[in-house]
């Protein structure tokens, strides 16, 4: 054996080589290759040309793309709702009361099931003669059946609801991990001082959960802007363009119409928007926008 082969450096690279190769090809390469691709008219069918910034110019003239961007941004409404509800859920299941483990598990079931199954169930529940309409009419919230997923005013919000329903358990678990890391003497000390329950939550729980809130907000934000599965399975962007999100539109342009160049350009624009959003969340959090101080 050569001497250099026994060096720690060589061994390290030998260990990492297979993994880094996969990362290079399937993580780095798409980021790098997407850029030149977006300046071409690459499609599988015809010859490829360099088209300059045409794709980007067309993108901003493309009415459907603008609508899809708007819908993706609108989808972000679901992020704070998920965070607030899942923090409350985490507080609810944090207590040491009998049977609480069962409830934690129950809330997590939607997370582990496939979106295909979840979408199917909700599409039945939400259809004209479905359970949701039945219950809402019974309670008196609505008087006539609503086709939730086929009405342009409601479809996007219904999809958000499904995203929320499937994701709550996931975020609850992450927040629960955070809650259990908070030393209990902090609460006891505050309680001795006569602080109310709400005060405890606002002044101890929320500030100490900040790293978790940052983490969860970021992943949920990226998920919301890039939302695809539920939209693609349930509405494919319809009715009309009312639920067309940017990921669905990019998928249609790229892998259904094989307009790879244009789809890459759209993807690049969305990537920049997500990057800006991530930076904003970091900034906002550092300045303490999330906690009451």
């Amino acid at each position: 054996m050569y001497k250099w082969m026994r060096s720690e450096s060589f061994t390290a690279w030998a260990f990492m080589a297979p993994g880094l190769l996969v990362v290079a090809v399937f993580v780095f390469w798409p980021i790098i290759y997407g850029i030149p691709l977006s300046f071409t008219d690459y499609s599988v069918i015809s010859e490829t040309h360099y088209v300059g910034v045409d794709n980007f110019v067309n993108a901003f003239k493309d009415h459907n793309f603008i609508i899809s961007l708007w819908n993706s941004l609108l989808y972000v409404i679901v992020v704070p709702i998920i965070q607030i509800l899942s923090i409350l859920m985490a507080i609810l299941v944090n207590g040491k009361i009998p049977g609480v483990k069962f409830f934690r598990t129950a809330y997590y079931i939607p997370v582990v099931t496939s979106m295909v199954a979840v979408a199917l169930i909700w599409s039945w529940l939400l259809s004209n003669n479905g359970v949701v309409n039945f219950l809402l009419i019974k309670v008196g919230i609505i008087s006539d059946q609503v086709s939730w997923l086929a009405t342009s005013n409601t479809a996007l919000f219904v999809l958000m609801f499904i995203t929320m329903w499937k994701g709550l358990g996931y975020y609850m678990m992450l927040y629960l991990a955070g809650l259990q890391g908070i030393p209990s003497d902090l609460y006891e000390a505050a309680r001795v001082d006569g602080a109310s329950r709400l005060r405890l939550i606002l002044n101890i729980t929320i500030p100490l959960l900040r790293p978790h809130i940052l983490f969860c907000t970021l992943i949920s934000l990226m998920g919301a802007i890039r939302v695809f599965d539920e939209v693609y399975i349930l509405t494919k962007g319809g009715p009309g363009t009312s639920t067309l999100t940017s990921s669905v539109y990019i998928f249609q342009k790229g892998l259904e119409q094989f307009n790879f160049g244009y789809a890459s350009a759209l993807g690049l624009i969305v990537s920049v928007i997500i990057a800006v959003f991530s930076v904003l969340v970091f900034r906002f959090n550092r300045k303490g926008g999330v906690n009451p101080y």
């Binding site: 997407g34 790229g254 993807g267 991530s278």
Partner: peptide, 23 residues
Amino acid sequence: VFTLLVATMIIPSSTAMIVHYLT
């Protein structure tokens, strides 16, 4: 190596699936 890996988690890649398909 570590920094590059961190960076990929922050940079989103919406076009990934298209490039994956080509690869």
